[in-house]
């Protein structure tokens, strides 16, 4: 077992953004996390990466309890992430942004620089290496987040809506990139609204609604689950919509 969350609860005041959620991740998995806006996906995700302290529950990585580890310690163990709202280092070049990730495993500047160049090559951003990061648009920033995370040589990569704000063509490119990352042996957790992405990438899916897990299984299984459709569309709409393919319905509003 690579990563495991046991009964995670995260409360803001009396409001439980995540309520008793558990998940296990095996080497080679691509776990999809879906759910309507405000379901608690990012909050759960931030509990796994250490950005948020859990109210209760444990997080285990390769069998060791990392619940009290800082984000930087988790990064060192091999947990990397991207942010839903890109956190670009604005004052740096694209290359320097990636070097920050590379410095985790190589303390020398020249080494980190060489590694960052290699990562940029891999994600197809070599041409932009010396451009100021602040000149990038959304697609560039999303890709840069992935590049930075890859430079830390992670075992598990968590992507929080890495494809939101991309057009159809850019989404295709991003899916190819994620496949390539997966092939290189990295286990993935992807939070995504775009059903097309979940359907084509995820091996398993977990559905959140109001902080609780309401379904899990293969992408096919969950998208035909009435509870899931109800969560997305409301119960009445779900009944009315019976007969349409759920993927179509769920993909609709967010594409």
């Amino acid at each position: 077992m690579l990563l495991e969350a046991r009964n995670i609860t995260k409360a803001f005041g009396s409001f439980k953004a995540v309520d008793d959620a558990s998940v296990t991740l095996e080497q080679g998995d691509i776990l999809g996390l879906i759910g309507p806006n405000g379901a608690g996906k990012s909050t759960f995700f931030n509990c796994l990466t250490g950005d948020l302290k859990t109210t209760s529950g444990r997080v285990l990585f390769e069998g060791a309890d990392i619940t009290d580890f800082t984000p930087e310690l988790r990064a060192e163990l091999g947990l990397a992430r991207t942010f839903q709202v890109p956190q670009t280092f604005e004052g740096m070049t694209v290359l320097e942004n990636v070097m920050i990730g590379a410095f985790l495993r190589s303390s020398h500047r020249k080494e980190a620089e060489a590694k960052a160049h290699a990562v940029l090559e891999r994600v197809g951003m070599s041409r932009l290496a010396d451009a100021p990061a602040r000149s990038l648009g959304t697609p560039g920033r999303k890709r840069l987040e992935i590049a930075r995370a890859l430079a830390t040589e992670p075992k598990v990569l968590l992507l929080d809506e890495a494809m939101a704000g991309l057009n159809a063509h850019e989404v295709k490119l991003a899916i190819d990139l994620v496949r390539d990352i997966h092939r290189s042996g990295i286990t993935l957790v992807i939070v995504e609204h775009i059903m097309e992405v979940i359907m084509s990438l995820a091996s398993r899916v977990m559905v959140f609604h109001q902080g609780k897990e309401i379904a899990r299984g293969s992408p096919r299984e969950v998208t035909s689950n009435p509870a899931v459709i109800a969560a997305y569309l409301g119960t009445r709409a779900a009944k009315a919509a019976a007969g349409h393919t759920p993927v179509e319905l769920m993909g609709g509003p967010d594409l």
Binding site: T49, D51, T70, P71, E72, A75, E76, A80, R81, F83, Q87, T88, F89, I100, G101, F103, L104, R148, A149, A151, T152
Partner: peptide, 9 residues
């Protein structure tokens, strides 16, 4: 936040 997520203490 991003720096820490990339391992910067």
């Amino acid at each position: 936040r991003a720096a820490r997520s990339l391992g910067a203490p």
